[in-house]
Amino acid sequence: MYVCLCKGITDKDIKEAVRAQGVGSLRELKQLMPLGSQCGTCTKVAQKIIDDTIIDDTMFKDVG
């Protein structure tokens, strides 16, 4: 789905940035794409997607 409607950025774009570019925070994400630069409504959802993707992909990968 579209997370940032102002700039047409999707949840897939954000997940891709986290996975491929190692983005870990909203500030790092904003350096790659203009997310949240217009109305800012999407920042909460974007933060949650970053967090969820990190938890899914890395947190428990190397345990044990």
């Binding site: 789905m1 579209y2 409607l5 999707t10 897939k12 409504t41 999407c42 909460k44 959802v45």
Partner: peptide
């Protein structure tokens, strides 16, 4: 409020 807009029909 925030809109949730999908990219394809099912979404």
């Amino acid at each position: 409020g925030a809109l949730s807009i999908g990219e394809e029909t099912q979404e």
